[in-house]
């Protein structure tokens, strides 16, 4: 126990800094993923043919092992001299988030009661009004479930990003493994787990906050 305290005394600032790096990487990736995935998911509900293809591609992306995807990023981003570091990791995480976000958005909008949609159109709502006032609010819990899945997934995959020099909590774990330092490995792993739990709790709070009482249950 004393050794733990001594370890933390020395390493706490570094752990915090790496946690912050990790959180920033994942947050930025999710924001961009949302900006792409939600509009795309909504658009796909109007284009059945494209929907099949896009969802298939997104599924395949998710099956690529993360270490392999990071590997593929290196030669591609070397073209613009960004082969390792933040950018390739960021792009990989955006790609990994697409499936849960697109699929959940698509399914949630598709599953809005057709009679509700009929009523909205019949009362003279424009497409944008129908989406913003009726379809998205009613689809929000399912869309948010997709976002939460993507965030937790990304926090885990973000650990691997340390291998391509993107920083984050993966650094502690990889260093710990190469040095045989259990303190580093355990503190890194715990920090990742804690980050995932906290992020999920925050998102759940946001989801509850923006879901009206009418569809809360």
């Amino acid at each position: 126990m004393e050794e733990w305290l001594r370890f933390l005394e020395i390493n706490a600032p570094r752990i915090l800094e790496l946690t912050l790096d990790h959180a920033i990487l994942v947050t930025l990736a999710i924001i961009v993923a949302l900006l792409i995935g939600v509009p795309l998911g909504i658009y796909l509900t109007t284009n059945e043919y494209l929907a099949g293809t896009v969802l298939q591609v997104a599924s395949v992306t998710l099956t690529i092992p993360s270490i392999a995807l990071f590997g593929v990023m290196i030669p591609i981003f070397s073209i613009i001299n960004q082969g390792i570091g933040f950018l390739p990791a960021f792009v990989a995480l955006v790609l990994y988030s697409q499936l849960p976000i697109i699929r959940n958005t698509y399914t949630a909008i598709k599953n809005v009661n057709p009679e509700m949609r009929d009523a909205a159109i019949g009362m003279g709502m424009k497409t944008s009004q129908r989406l913003l006032r009726v379809e998205i609010p009613n689809a929000l819990p399912v869309i948010m479930a997709g976002v939460r899945t993507a965030v937790v997934l990304n926090i885990g995959i973000g650990v691997i990003a340390a291998y391509i020099g993107a920083g984050g909590l993966g650094v502690l774990i990889t260093q710990g493994i190469s040095r045989g330092d259990n303190y580093l490995i355990i503190s890194g792993s715990l920090a990742v787990a804690l980050l995932a739990i906290i992020a999920d709790a925050i998102l759940l709070f946001i989801q509850k906050r923006f879901t009206t009482k009418g569809i809360a249950n």
Partner: peptide, 22 residues
């Protein structure tokens, strides 16, 4: 079509109320 629909009241069997609105 949008203007027309706003001028014509429309009631459907399943009431079509929006659960997210008061």
């Amino acid at each position: 079509a949008i203007e027309l629909r706003r001028k014509v009241g429309y009631v459907i069997q399943s009431n079509g109320l929006f659960p997210n609105m008061t």
